[in-house]
Amino acid sequence: MQVTVRVVGHLVYKTGFGEKILELPSGITVSELIRRIGLDENVPGMVTRNGACLLPGDELNPGDRIVIAPAYSGG
């Protein structure tokens, strides 16, 4: 299945991309995705789908737009 992954902030320097459409196995979870794109599971502060936060065990769906952000705490 295809999923759009948007990485924001300084995490882009670890993944090497800001936004990409990835071909992923169906049923893949958030934590599996994070490992697959080269991030430490503990690093991202927040993973969201349509603005709603996802948990590490949540499964992704075809066509999702997933946003992976650091743990921002405000300027």
Binding site: R6, V8, G9, H10, G18, T48, G51, V67, A69, P70, Y72, G74, G75
Partner: peptide
């Protein structure tokens, strides 16, 4: 860095 995140959420 916060801008892209605010735009997405």
């Amino acid at each position: 860095g916060v801008l892209a995140w605010c735009n997405e959420v």
